[in-house]
């Protein structure tokens, strides 16, 4: 057992991310960096600023031209209305359920697959790898036409399961390849050592490899979460009105035959993006750290 422990510690050291680069050691003022940062920040945040401004603009002023960059008249009506619209919270709940289960399932499926691709050589391996990577290469609009019929036959339409299974599958290319890269970075000696201790392959994987891969699992999980969170077309078609997630829900609510309730749409988008953004900001350390260990190569 002790042998295993030291090996674990050794591997942890090997795979933990090197300390963040301290490349800029007060050599000279980093003008280039600051200018780049300002430009990138403007690009990233100005649209968000405009989204926020629009969300507090009264309806009859939303279209005034030239637009008021700094609003003179502010209303929180759109927000109040959202909090009085139970449907939005049902969509939010659905989105969270679907995205969270997708995340868990996707991580579980990809870690096994990634491990197989990383640590074993078997016939058909390369073809399977091609297949995983290429599984997102066909027009989704067409897949949907058939998938709808398939789910209908299995009576899975209008269920969370239809969405979860689809989204999980669509996350496989990224998650499997990411985790494969992660496992590649773990030394094979670990597996050998576990075997020496008499651990079976499953135990080796679950109690030796997986704990070391935890940050990577979190990272790929977050990517899976965003996939489920963002999808429009599949969510709209497969989920039905009761299980509708946010993207189609918002469209259904604010975009009508030929007009768009811009301020309300923007307000709702902000409201629903806040919880997930906060969670990601809290997790970002983990996210970057998690990809790191697996990022030695793709």
């Amino acid at each position: 057992m002790t042998a295993l422990d030291t090996e674990t510690a050794f591997a942890a050291e090997l795979t933990s991310p090197p300390r963040p680069g301290r490349t800029g050691k007060r050599r000279r003022p980093r003008w280039g960096m600051w200018i780049a940062l300002v430009i990138l920040a403007l690009f990233a945040f100005l649209p968000l600023y405009w989204l926020a401004v629009t969300s507090v603009t009264p309806n009859d002023q939303a279209f005034s031209y030239p637009p008021r960059l700094f609003p003179t008249e502010i209303t929180f009506d759109h927000y109040l209305k959202i909090f009085r619209t139970p449907a939005i919270f049902r969509y939010l709940e659905n989105s969270v359920i679907v995205s969270v289960i997708t995340t868990l399932l996707s991580v579980a499926v990809s870690m096994y697959m990634g491990y197989a691709f990383s640590k074993f050589r078997f016939r058909g391996r390369k073809s399977l790898m091609y297949f995983v990577l290429s599984s997102q290469m066909f027009p989704q609009a067409l897949l949907l036409v058939t998938l709808y019929v398939v789910f209908a036959q299995f009576n899975l339409l209008n269920t969370y399961l239809a969405l979860i299974l689809s989204f999980t599958t669509f996350t496989l290319p990224l998650c499997v390849w990411m985790l494969k890269g992660f496992f590649d970075a773990l030394p094979d000696d670990l597996i050998e050592a576990a075997k020496i201790d008499g651990a079976g392959p499953w135990r080796t994987f679950h109690s030796v490899i997986l704990p070391l891969a935890a940050p990577g699992l979190v990272a790929s999980g977050l990517f899976a979460f965003v996939r489920g969170w963002n999808d429009f077309m599949f969510a709209l078609t497969l989920a039905g009105p009761e299980k509708q997630t946010l993207p189609p829900g918002l469209v259904n609510m604010f975009i009508t035959e030929s007009s768009t309730a811009w301020p309300a749409l923007m307000a709702a988008s902000l409201v629903v993006s806040v919880p997930v953004s906060v969670a990601f900001i809290a997790l970002q350390r983990f996210l970057v750290g998690g990809v790191t260990a697996g990022a030695v190569k793709g």
Binding site: L48, N230, S277
Partner: peptide
Amino acid sequence: GAFLIPWLVPGV
């Protein structure tokens, strides 16, 4: 963290 927000706004 903040730079992740554009990625988290629902695509549509």
